[in-house]
Nucleic acid binder design. Structure first.
Lengths: 140, 140
DNA sequence: AGCTTATTGTTCGTATACAAACATAGTCCC
DNA sequence: GGGACTATGTTTGTATACGAACAATAAGCT
C-alpha cells in the first residue's frame, strides 16, 4: 500500500454509526408519537416549558437555524398548536405561544417522549446508559 | 403535579443529543471534504471497496432506502464519479461501477475521512472512544 | 441626526430521509 | 404454463437541514 493509510471501514466511522442510531431512534419516535415529528415536539416542549419566545430564539434553544425553525413553526401553527403575534417592542420579532390545544397535546405526549428515550437506550444496561449519554454530550 | 411524570428536559433526551452530535460531525465533514456529502462519500467508498453493485444493494450496505440511494447515485453519476449499466442477467438491475475519476477522488479523500472520525471523537480520551463506539453500535 | 453594524425573519436552492404507490422483471410453486 | 409473490427502480409528497442572499428593523457610535 502507498503508505500506512488504514483501511476505511464504513461501519467503524462515527458518522455512519451515528446516522444508523438516529434512524432507529426516528423509527421508535414515529411509533410512539405519530402526530408530531421530533423537531416539532422539541419546539412545542420548549415553548410549553420556557414560555413564549421569539422564533429565532426558539430555534437557538432547539438547535435549529432560522430557515429550519421557520418551517417547523409554520407546521405547528398550521396544526393550531402554536399562535404567533408581533412583538410591540420589536417589530421584527414574532412572539410564539403554545395554544391550549398545543399545551394539551404536549401534556398528553410527555410520557411517550420519555418512553422513546427509554426504548432507544433499551439495548444498554443502566450503567451503560449514563456512560453513553455523558460521552455523547461530550462530542456535541 | 398530576402524577410521578418526570420533568421533560430536552437536553437529556437521546434524540436531541444525537441530533446535535450529528450536526457537529456534519460541520467537521464539510470542512474536511467539501466536494462530497457524507452519504455520497459512503456510497463511493463502498463501491470502491466492494466492487460493482446494484443500486438497491448499495443502498442496503449504506443504510439508505431505495428513494434516497437513487438521489445519491444520480448526483454521483452527474459528477462523473460513478457509471451505470444494465445487468444482462436481470433487466431490472442497474450495475454501478466507480469511474477512474471516482476511484481517484476516493483515494485522495480517504485520509481526510479518517481525520473526520478522529476530529469528531477528539473530545474523548482513547479509552472513551472505544467505549463510545461500542455503545453507539449497540443502539443501532 | 447620520452612518454602521447587528438582528430578525423570509426565500431560494440543494441534499438527505422515508412512506406510499407504481411499472417492470424475476422467482416460486402448483 | 400460469398465477402469486417478490425484488428493482422510479416518482411524488412531506419534513428536516443548512448556506446564501435579502428586506426591514433595531442598536450603537460619532
Amino acid at each position: 500500500m502507498a503508505s500506512d493509510t488504514p483501511e476505511y471501514v464504513l461501519d467503524r466511522q462515527v458518522g455512519f454509526v451515528l446516522r444508523r442510531a438516529t434512524q432507529r431512534h426516528l423509527t421508535i419516535f414515529a411509533a410512539q408519537i405519530p402526530d408530531l415529528t421530533p423537531t416539532q415536539f422539541a419546539a412545542l416542549a420548549k415553548l410549553c416549558a420556557a414560555g413564549p419566545e421569539s422564533q429565532n430564539a426558539l430555534g437557538r434553544q432547539t438547535a435549529m437555524d432560522a430557515a429550519t425553525i421557520k418551517g417547523v413553526v409554520d407546521r405547528l401553527r398550521a396544526k393550531g398548536l402554536v399562535t404567533a403575534g408581533r412583538d410591540p417592542d420589536d417589530q421584527r420579532r414574532i412572539t410564539l405561544t403554545p395554544s391550549s390545544k398545543g399545551r394539551a397535546l404536549y401534556e398528553a405526549r410527555v410520557s411517550q417522549a420519555h418512553a422513546i428515550t427509554r426504548d432507544t437506550l433499551a439495548p444498554l444496561t443502566e450503567a451503560e446508559r449514563d456512560t453513553f449519554l455523558a460521552l455523547l454530550a461530550k462530542i456535541t
